[in-house]
Amino acid sequence: MHELGIATAVLDAVRTEARRRPGARVRRVGLRLGEVGGVDRDALTFCFEAITRDTELDGLVLDIEHCPLRHRCPACDRTFEVARFETQCPICGCRDTVCVGGDELELAYLEVDDDGPGTPGTEGPQ
């Protein structure tokens, strides 16, 4: 249950970015979550909603992109998704493949609305 800490770190980053854009309203934040990143999507969504409710970011949408475990084959240089931890290269059969994705815990993007009323707390000097 470290999802509350993760949700708080996401919100900190959103607030930092929102302060750089006074007058803009943050609508959506995109997150990349890897299959073996050790973060539960549902628990994170629950925590995120709980800590944004009744704040200036109430209604902010958390958009989670699931990143599957991916390996690259050094023999044929293809990258493939690993299903059920079968890491053998499906193309050439090489067993010595290298993990290149699946442990992401990254902020991808923010969607901000520059036309509407700004996110409260972002107007004026901080």
Partner: peptide, 15 residues
């Protein structure tokens, strides 16, 4: 609506 790329680790402060 603007989409601003962030491209940073969530736990960047810990990192």
């Amino acid at each position: 609506m603007d989409r601003v790329p962030l491209e940073q680790k969530v736990l960047s402060e810990n990192d």
